[in-house]
């Protein structure tokens, strides 16, 4: 056979601009395996737990990785890790079951950009954002976001990045504007 054995899309087919949502690592995130756990934990108000859980479910339904075969899905998420979705006129497809959710508190200074990038997934009041979490077949102990980034269990994950003071923008792309199309 000279063709791929399986192909799947992890990210495409959902609203693609949303994918940049992960461009800003939250400074703080708390993970829960269920809504009940969030409510019991008490670190977040019941209102935030409820709204961010719903947001995570909604995001899960719209953006979870999807596969054209159960085997391909289970290869990544393990047996019992996948659910079937029936789409009339299209055929069945498979996506991982949501294994938990994460509530992130976002930095205020990035609000404008978040708003543009999250699009239909604008955050709840108070700068929180719920996201679905998954578990991989090989690595059951680690939470993963929908684009396969690992998330530490618990709270207070801080990601430090190499920062530099930006002086100017728009220094690439001028010839595209002048010439139109260039992909080949």
């Amino acid at each position: 056979m000279k063709r791929s054995r399986i192909v799947g899309l992890a990210l495409m087919g959902s609203a693609p601009v949303l994918l940049s949502a992960c461009g800003e690592p939250p400074t703080e995130a708390i993970t829960y395996s269920s809504l009940e756990q969030c409510l019991k934990d008490g670190k977040l108000s019941a209102e935030v737990c409820e709204s961010e859980y719903q947001r995570a479910v909604q995001m899960h339904q719209q953006t979870a990785p999807r596969f054209t075969s159960q085997a391909a899905c289970e290869a990544q998420y393990g047996p019992q890790g996948c659910q079937v979705v029936r789409a009339p006129g299209f055929g069945d497809y498979f996506m991982p079951a949501m294994a938990g959710f994460m509530v992130a508190k976002l930095l205020d200074q990035r609000r404008d950009r978040d708003q543009a990038y999250y699009g239909g997934y604008a955050r709840g009041a108070g700068g929180y954002r719920g996201e679905p979490l998954y578990r991989n077949r090989e690595d059951r102990s680690t939470w993963r976001t929908w684009d396969n980034q690992t998330v530490e269990r618990g709270e207070g994950k801080t990601v430090m990045r190499d920062k530099a003071i930006t002086q100017s923008r728009g220094g690439f792309g001028s010839q595209a504007a002048a010439r139109g199309s260039w992909g080949s």
């Binding site: 940049s20 800003e24 950009r113 190499d162 920062k163 530099a164 792309g173 595209a176």
Partner: peptide, 24 residues
């Protein structure tokens, strides 16, 4: 991975390329 529009790429004072959050 991340996405950025080409036109949004920035240049820092020390000559490195940055995203909209000033990450190199």
């Amino acid at each position: 991975t991340r996405l950025i529009d080409l036109e949004d790429i920035g240049a820092s004072i020390d000559g490195r390329y940055t995203d909209l959050a000033h990450d190199v």
